[in-house]
Design a protein around this nucleic acid. Structure first.
Ligand SMILES: [Mn+2]
Ligand SMILES: [Mn+2]
Ligand SMILES: [Zn+2]
Ligand SMILES: [Zn+2]
Lengths: 132, 132
DNA sequence: TTGTAGTTTATAATGGTTCTAAACAGCTGT
DNA sequence: ACAGCTGTTTAGAACCATTATAAACTACAA
């Protein structure tokens, strides 16, 4: 399997559950934006054995900590995660709650003129809300 | 009281509780960013009668609906609200979870080049995360 | 003053997330 | 191959911000 090495190199044991979750999360062309519940549904549809919800939470947080996933700041009752861990921006479709990536080339240069003493910028994220 | 008219004009009855919450929220020079719990604490410190937590939630949501407050998209276990309802951006201090306004003059023009068919942009918000 | 609709309140319910602790499984050394 | 260790999975409980409930209360118009 292609994820065994990746997990081992991160200090994570390549368990059956983690490998299956890796396939669902990372075997895709495009960025995957998801909530834990959406991931849980995808797992139920695509694999035959059961993975407990606790394991899904554990795995997502482990992957986040290792830098394979990141959270997206959205006001929702559920936390959104992103398989695209590069610095990038989002469209947020208010109708269906779905996210679309904006690559850096899709956005002109951002100039933050204000400075805060003793602080440095860690990230700059734009959220563009869309309506009909 | 200066808020009685404002509330009546919005179709909200100017109750004692709402007027007291108005004073805490809006009698200030600068933008107030807060969670429900922080507001609850401020209320406990500044007024003598009790306002139930349910009323605080009800009032904040009523004010949000009327456009006197808005939510800020932040990943936190609590929802953040903002008394500055204009379109503006934020610094987010990761150390203490505090928000600082960025006026539009603090940020250069933002150019979103990508278009989504049949959708129009409702808002553009930048979140600048700060670290030491 | 009286009626009505809007509001407040204590309390329960909801639901996403985290915790617990016992069973289980991957890995290292023998 | 086996033992032993430690990391992982799991069901279920706990947590806690938020929302729902429904009864008491209140603003206000008639
Ligand atoms: Mn996390
Ligand atoms: Mn709301
Ligand atoms: Zn993304
Ligand atoms: Zn603000």
């Amino acid at each position: 399997m292609k994820y065994i090495e990746k997990l081992r190199n991160s200090g994570l044991r390549p368990t059956k559950q983690r490998l299956q979750i890796c396939e669902i999360l990372f075997d895709r062309e495009k960025t995957f934006h998801f909530t834990i519940n959406e991931l849980d549904q995808k797992i139920k549809n695509k694999i035959h054995n059961k993975i407990s919800l606790a394991t899904i939470y554990n795995t997502v947080h482990a992957f986040e900590k290792k830098g394979y996933l990141k959270q997206i700041p959205i006001n929702s009752n559920q936390t959104y995660f992103d398989t695209n861990v590069t610095d990038h921006h989002h469209f947020y479709n208010l109708e269906d709650g779905k996210l679309i990536d904006l690559e850096n080339s899709d956005v002109g240069p951002i100039n933050i003129k204000k400075k805060i003493n003793g602080k440095k910028i860690k990230s700059i994220e734009i959220l563009v809300k869309l309506e009909d």
